[in-house]
Design a protein around this nucleic acid. Sequence first.
DNA 1: CCAAAAGTGTTTCAGCTACACCCATGA
DNA 2: TCATGGGTGTAGCTGAAACACTTTTGG
Lengths: 239, 239
Amino acid sequence: MDTGSAIDLAVSTVIFALRSNDPLQPRGEPTVWIPLVRRLRAPYDNHWALPGGPLGADEGPTDAARRALQSTTGLQPKYLEQLYTFGDPERSPGATRVVSIVYWALVGIDEVAHAPARQNVRWLPADDLPTLAFDHNLIVDYALWRLRTKVSHSRIAHAFLGETFTLADLREVHEVVLGKRLDPANFRRQVLASGHVVATGGMRTGGRHRPARLYRYDQSMSMTDHGPLGPVLLSERNS
Amino acid sequence: MDTGSAIDLAVSTVIFALRSNDPLQPRGEPTVWIPLVRRLRAPYDNHWALPGGPLGADEGPTDAARRALQSTTGLQPKYLEQLYTFGDPERSPGATRVVSIVYWALVGIDEVAHAPARQNVRWLPADDLPTLAFDHNLIVDYALWRLRTKVSHSRIAHAFLGETFTLADLREVHEVVLGKRLDPANFRRQVLASGHVVATGGMRTGGRHRPARLYRYDQSMSMTDHGPLGPVLLSERNS
DNA sequence: CCAAAAGTGTTTCAGCTACACCCATGA
DNA sequence: TCATGGGTGTAGCTGAAACACTTTTGG
C-alpha cells in the first residue's frame, strides 16, 4: 500500500577530517574540520549545510552517504556509520517536510590535502561554526559528541591518519579529538596492549630526536560500520 | 523540490518486557519477551512482525513509535530510544520499497500483566523467535544487543520494573538481560554508589527472610531518549 | 654537549571481585 | 531453631595514572 507520502527522504553526512589551523604551517596543531556546501535556494539560501541529497530509488542509505562524501570531497571514507534519523515535522520550516538519515564519516588527513577544491564547498572548524541551514548545527554537535565517545572507548582514531603512522601521530589525534593531553607512556602501552596496531618495521626520522617506529592498523576489519547488517559491527559488538 | 519519491516511510518499535516463562507461576525466573503482530496480507501473510506503521504526515518519528506501542500493548513506555534506520532496497522483496525508522522500548513488568489482550498480538520470548516478516529477526537481534550493552553500562534496567523495587528485583533484571549471575553484595554497592536510586523508606516483607528496603529511581531525568534533541541525552552524555 | 621526543620501568591508587560474616524474618 | 535472602566488611587483584629515567637523534 503506497500512501504516496508527502514526506521527502534525504541522506546527509557529517564528514570529519583533521586540518592544521594555519594553512601556512601544515605541521601546526590540527583541529577537527568538516566540509559544508553552500545552499543556492530558499529556505536558508546562502547558508552552509551538510552535504547530502535525496535518497535514490534503487540506492541504500549507506551508498547515498558515501555518494554525498564523494561528491563534496572526492574521497573515500576511512570510516562510515549511521548517526541518527531526524524527522520532526518542524525541522524544515516553510518547506516540504524532510526526514534525514544522517551518517558520519572520517577521512584521512593527507588525502584531504590532495583532494581538489570544489565549487560551493568549504571546510570549517567543527567546534566553531556559523549558523547553518535547518537543524544542522544540532546535528554536527551530536556527531561531534558521538565522535568523542567513540574515540574514547573504541579504536577508530587511526582513520584520521594515513596508511602508516607513529604512536605520537595517533596520540595527537586522540588529544585533538578529546581536547586534552594524554601521557605518552600510558597511551603507548594501552594502544599496544589492544593489539589493534602492528609495527611495520619502518622508522620515521627527521625530528631532532630519536626516530619513531611506524605502525599500521591491523586490518582484520573494514572501517565501514554497516550497522546491524555487515560483519563489521559483529566484531565491534564483541569488543 | 518534492521528488514524489516512491519510497514508503514507516516506523516500527521493538518492545521489551520481562515475563515469567511459566504463566502459572508468576514468581518464576522471568525472561525477555516482545509483542508481535500477525500480518494479514502479503508479503509474509500470517507471519509475525514488529508493531508499527507508516509515518503520519504531521507526526514525529518518536510519536509514531509511541503510537505503535500504545496500539499493540495499550501501554506507555518506561524507556524509548531510536535504534536504527533500515533502508536497503532489498529488504522488502516484491513489495513497495520501505524505509523503516526503528525504535526500541522498555515497559514495566507489572503493567504488562494488567494490559488487555489484543487481537492479532502475541508476546514471544525474544531469544527464541520463529521466522518473522521481512528482516525483523535481524532487527530484534540488533535491539537485543543494544539492550544488553545499554544495561551493562547505563542505568535503564529499572524501566522494566514498577515504581518501587528492591535491589534484588533490580539485580534480577540485570541477571536476566545479561544472562549471568551477579554478586548481590557488589551489585548493591555499585547501584547505590551511582546515586541513581533512592530509598523510599518502605520495606517489602513476606519472604521467609529479612525484609528488603524499597527503592525508586531518581527521576531527575525522563526515560525517553530524544536523541540529540531533548535534555535527556544531555544528561546521558555526561555519564 | 644540549634539547627534545621515543621508549621503558616503577610506584601508587581506585575500583572491582570474591567471599566471609552478621541480621531479620517466616515457617 | 533453621533456612533463606538482606545487608556489611574486607583482603586481594588488576589496570590506569603519574612520573622518574634511559635512549637516540639533530643541531
